[in-house]
Amino acid sequence: MSESGQLKQYIAFEIDDEIYAIDVLFVESIERMTQITRVPHSPPEVLGVINLRGDVMPVMSARRMLGYEEKTADDATRIAILRYDECRIGMIVDRVTEILNIPQDEVLWGGEALDEKRKVVISGLINLRDKPVMIVDIPRTLEWLLN
């Protein structure tokens, strides 16, 4: 198989009616929603910390990061535990839908059309059954968050 046609796995999640995807390599696990302890003086995207099997783990809201309105958690709400370098953080999403196998040459760059907030963290677009899927670039997201 040629380099460009290589398959990459993504985890797809939804916020309202829009679909996003994260490279599966950065996802450690998917957890159910749990109690969050607020951390004062933290960036607005970070909601607080959770107890993940005895470890304390910061969690951020995908809604806040991508510029959506707040919504109360429900049964479908999930926390995707992400890991990049030495940074581990949970990302709260509305629901996790499926795992996608995407050939790399089908990933397009359509970032020009995005708003400022999303331009920072979205690195590509995929057309899935005639719906756009936005790829969230985890390294960029975390770097942006840390600074």
């Binding site: 302890t37 951390v39 004062p40 003086h41 933290s42 910390v49 107890n51 304390v56 951020m60 940074c87």
Partner: peptide, 21 residues
Amino acid sequence: GKALSKIKIVSGATILGDGRV
């Protein structure tokens, strides 16, 4: 965790018997 290492007024966290942070 690294993402919150810049917050100075909190030196860390602990987990209580009931699992709360």
